[in-house]
């Protein structure tokens, strides 16, 4: 029996009839001429702040604000989803309508929300208390003023979960947030399209560990007056909670920003511990634990342009979990004078 590989050997013999193709040069990519003028350290810091600040709280609060002064019938409120074909979770409340209130605020579309908060124990007791909260917001809706100014527009979903253990002289929390969709309007403050996942743990001194990954597009608020998009996949821990083999000077992962020409500028930091290719080559410049990353422009390494950041700003209360009371959005509060 002839081995299979040998069969291919026979087939791979040069074909004398094949034309001689002219040699071609490797393709080259041009770089932006003003590369030297970009303050990359500030740019990436601003990008990180923006990405880490995008969580459920923005759309949740904006939506809750639109429901204040709810009128009977505008919008129509439903127990659960507005129709059985909705692929939202169980329970909760929703609205679905095209209508205008007496103050000419108009509602178009639908929104569904669900929120729970459970508490056990007494935080004044040595055994402490555990608070667990969850909220979900999904929909496709636009709420506008009489002058057609958009108060809040949302198309997507967002969820977050908070767990907080508290006792005298003790606080420990974990919080995860996910937003997926696009949102705009004056109640939001900043228009964005995003899929961002944030997971953070911390204590009374603030966050001590963060995972942040996803994409953000903010066309109306450029970073460094140039970049409209962020892509990020980072995890980081404070020096106090970093494992001995970890790096306390910089996150692991990467962050990228995109300019209006759709050119990506990537900053590659410490490799992920699961990145076996990096482990296999510890001499790569981005493998060093020095607070600096390797810049890539359009995928080309810019080894002469090392970008170094002081990442301690991440721990200066940039990432704070929501208060348990923020999970409230009760129909009873919206309709206190129901018949």
């Amino acid at each position: 029996m002839i081995p299979l590989a040998l069969l291919f050997l026979v087939n791979c013999a040069p074909d004398p009839a094949a034309p001689n193709l002219p040699e071609t040069e490797a393709p080259t990519l041009s770089l932006p001429p003003d590369l030297d003028s970009i303050d990359f350290a500030t740019t990436y810091q601003d990008a990180l702040i923006r990405a880490a600040s995008l969580d459920v709280r923005g759309p949740w609060a904006a939506h809750a604000e639109t429901l204040q002064g709810l009128e009977a019938g505008c919008p129509d409120v439903y127990a659960g989803a507005p129709d059985l074909d909705s692929e939202v979770g169980d329970g909760g409340y929703s609205w679905s309508d095209r209508c205008s209130r007496a103050d000419q605020t108009s509602f178009g579309g639908w929104m569904w929300w669900s929120n729970t908060l459970a508490s056990e124990g007494d935080r004044a007791d040595a055994a402490g208390s555990t608070v667990t909260g969850q909220r979900d917001l999904e929909g496709d809706a636009t709420i506008s003023t009489a002058a057609a100014d958009v108060l809040f527009r949302f198309n997507g979903e967002s969820h977050d979960t908070l767990s907080r253990v508290e006792a005298p002289d003790y606080l420990r929390w974990t919080w995860s947030s996910e937003v997926l969709g696009d949102a705009s309007g004056s109640l939001l403050g900043e228009d964005w399209r995003a899929d961002v996942y944030l997971y953070a743990v911390g204590d009374d001194a603030g966050a001590s560990g963060v995972e942040l990954r996803g994409n953000v597009y903010t066309p109306g608020a450029l970073i460094a007056e140039r970049f409209d998009s962020i892509a990020v996949d980072l995890s980081f821990a404070t020096p106090e909670t970093t494992a001995p083999e970890g790096c306390a000077l910089e996150p692991s992962g990467w962050i990228a920003v995109r300019d209006a020409d759709a050119w990506w500028y990537d900053l590659v930091l410490a490799p992920r511990t699961t990145d076996t290719s990096a482990v296999a080559d510890p001499d790569e410049p981005w493998s060093a634990c020095d607070g600096c990353g390797t810049l890539y422009v359009r995928g080309l390494p810019q080894t002469e342009r090392e970008v170094c950041l002081d990442f301690s700003f991440l721990w200066d209360y940039l990432i704070t979990p929501p208060e348990p009371a923020e999970f409230a959005l009760s129909l009873r509060d919206l309709l206190p004078e129901a018949p």
């Binding site: 129509d76 507005p82 679905s96 309508d97 095209r98 579309g109 639908w110 496709d140 696009d182 399209r193």
Partner: peptide, 15 residues
């Protein structure tokens, strides 16, 4: 990328 025109899809207008 352009902003989607949200709220214009299938909407249940009255229960």
């Amino acid at each position: 990328w352009t902003w989607g025109d949200s709220g214009t899809g299938t909407v249940t207008e009255s229960p």
